[in-house]
Amino acid sequence: MQSFPCPFCGPRPETEFRHDGEAGKLRPALSCTDSEWSLYLRARTAARGPSREIWTHLPCMETFVLQRDTLSHRVGEVAP
């Protein structure tokens, strides 16, 4: 079980967190094309290795960006 650093509560076990997708995706404007919207909704990088992910710590509801290596599970910087 991984240990993630919640910016509010400190290190807590992985099971208390919810994965909210990859960080850095921007919500397109209403005027975007269908395919741009579909890419926003469905396309995932699913990076093998370093990635930036959005996680929410459910007991305190803090949502934050976590740098994590999907291969080694090494956890890096956290930004609220």
């Binding site: 079980m1 991984q2 240990s3 992985e14 599970h73 956890v75």
Partner: peptide, 9 residues
């Protein structure tokens, strides 16, 4: 100690 898991658990 029966198992070592992620992040040293």
């Amino acid at each position: 100690a029966f198992g070592v898991y992620d992040h040293g658990l």
